[in-house]
Amino acid sequence: MNLIEVKNLSYSYDGKINVLDDVSFVVEAGKYISIIGHNGSGKSTIAKLLTCLLEPKSGSIVAFGLKANRKNAREIRSHTGIVFQNPDNQFIGSTVRDDIAFGLENRQVKHEDMEGIIQEFASKVNMSEYLDKEPENLSGGQKQRVAIAGILAMKPDVVIFDEATSMLDPKGRNEIHETIKFMRKENPNLTLISITHDLEEAFASDHIIVLNKGKVSFEGSPKEVLQHRKELEEIGLDLPFKEKLVSLLNEKGFSLSSDESLERIVGKICQ
C-alpha cells in the first residue's frame, strides 16, 4: 500500500530557482526509506512539504489519501511525526516530561492519561531517569531521543527524520541509530523516512532515493543504489567504507565483492 505519493513535485522559495524540480516517488507503508543528497539538494524542503509546513507549488503530494495542503494539514500531521536537525530548537517544554506532554496537549489527550503515556514513551527511548531534567542539562543525543518520544507518543503512522543526527557527536548518533532499530522492531507497521547525507546511515534502510540539485537522480534498494558508485561520488556522498575499500582494491587488480563480510574480504587479500 502506498502511504504517500509524490508526483511531479516542484518547489521554489524565491520563484526563480527550483529547489525541487519534478520530483516523484512513493512511500510504501511499513518501509524504511532514506532520502539522501548533499547540503542544498532540496531534501529538507521535502520534509517540510510532507509535514504541510510548506504547500506544493506545482505537482502534488497525496498522503494517507489526502492532498497535502493547508486545509488538510491538521489531519496529515496527525499521521506524521518529524524529528528536526537542531536538538535545541525542537525542545519546547521546560523539562523532558513537559516536552513529551506538549504534543499530547495539542491532541487533547485527557489529563488523567498523560502521565502514563509520558512514562511509557520515555522508557522506550531510555529517558525514564531524566524526566525532570531541563534541556540545558541534556546531551544532543538525549534531546533528540526526547523528541522521538514526544512524536511516538502521538502514535503516528510515519516518522520523518530530517538530518536528525547531523548535529550530534558519534555517541549521540549511535543512540539515535539504536532507537531507530528499536522502533522498527517494536512496530513493524511504522513507516520511517530518513533524510540524510550519511550513506552509511541510509544503507540501513529498505529503499534509498538519491537527490541531486532538486531532482531524483536514481532510487532503489541499497544494493541497486550501489550500482551507481560513480554518480554517488560525483554528487559528493561518501560511500560506506567497505564499498570504497573493495572498489579501490578492484582497481588494483583484485576481484572482490562487497557482499562478503570485511573479515572474508581481508582474508582474500592476504591469501
Binding site: K244, L245, L249, K252, L262, V266, G267, I269, C270
Partner: peptide, 24 residues
C-alpha cells in the same frame, strides 16, 4: 586484520584509504 593474517604492511605509510590500498 592484515597483520593477524600475516600481511606485513608498513604502518607509517598508511594515512587514508588510498594509501592503505596502495600499501596492500
Amino acid at each position: 586484520m592484515c597483520f593477524a593474517k600475516g600481511l606485513k604492511l608498513d604502518i607509517n605509510k598508511i594515512k587514508n584509504l588510498e594509501s592503505l590500498v596502495d600499501e596492500i
